[in-house]
Nucleic acid binder design. Structure first.
Lengths: 161, 161
DNA sequence: GCCTAACTGTTAGGCTACCTAACTATGAAC
DNA sequence: GTTCATAGTTAGGTAGCCTAACAGTTAGGC
């Protein structure tokens, strides 16, 4: 984390390779997201609502839905950016915005039926495209990829904090 | 590649997990690219010039530098987008645009000294940040990651074609 | 009680990077 | 030497992000 250390050369090489892999992957991601029905940002937001949907984090005391600030933090964007996306989704009938009964400053965002269906459809479509790409790999390659995904998840989780 | 096939459930699960990992990784990438000196798009372009720099692809007959169309294809963007970035880099003194001696329609883009230095500096900085992140992992995790990178590279190479 | 401070979200304005469509200029084919 | 294809640029538009400024709500200190 500290730039003042010289850093292990092997670690730097891995860092470089990983960066390179991610850099090239944006092309893949762009292709996946070019299916037109839902933008990457919007799908991420809807998915988040779905995951955290039914019961917020929470207790019976907490109302259903996710707060705007929480959404922003989860997506790694600032609050105004989240608001913008939420408004678009609301206009599209995929999400709903309701005042929080416990805190009138806050807004609770929930998925509509249509939103749930849209997430499912978009995910299915993108997954099948991705599966098509992965089907060209060898079994060993797929195993190596599968083994690394939790690691990448761990890396991303670290940053969230 | 074909949506009409039902597709192996295991493959679909892997596809979903991989998509998820990439989706979360954009946060990491954003952090890495937020160092201000060079945008992600510009660094990618400069890096490409550096990699393909000295001798295009080519023979002695081909002039030095990379053509705009080739740059666009390599970055996975359309030609006007490439032109836009190239012009910015040119204005910043990091790249040079010269007419192709063999084909007056074409333009050859090359790195300047300053451009080379900028790539090196930006890369170093980003690598050390990334290394910092990776240093929090266990040895096993790093090994798993290292094993998967060539696979991801293979996936990306497939798409390029 | 009330005034200030902290917090939640929206609005306004601006930036970057991408896109498509239309154009210019050169090269190649016949 | 037209005609067609190719290489890049220009013009205009969109999505998604940002910061700064704002409005409303809650919580604390006195």
């Amino acid at each position: 984390m500290n730039a003042s250390e010289p850093a292990d050369p092997g670690l730097l090489a891995l860092a470089q390779d990983f960066r390179e892999a991610l850099r090239h992957s944006i092309y893949l991601v762009r292709r996946l997201d070019a299916d037109g029905e839902l933008s990457a940002a919007q799908l991420s937001l809807l998915k988040m609502l779905m995951d955290a949907g039914p019961a917020t984090g929470g207790r019976a005391s907490s109302a259903s839905g996710v707060r705007v600030g929480e959404i922003a933090r989860n997506l790694g964007v600032k609050v105004p950016s989240a608001t913008e996306q939420i408004i678009k989704l609301e206009r599209a009938g995929l999400a709903r915005r309701e005042p929080d009964p416990n805190d009138s400053r806050a807004v609770r965002v929930t998925l509509t039926e249509a939103g749930l269906a849209a997430v499912a459809a978009a995910n299915e479509r993108r997954n099948s495209v991705m599966a098509g790409v992965l089907s060209c790999l060898s079994d060993d390659d797929r195993a190596a990829l599968a083994a690394a995904l939790p690691v990448i998840g761990r890396i991303n989780a670290t940053l969230q904090a």
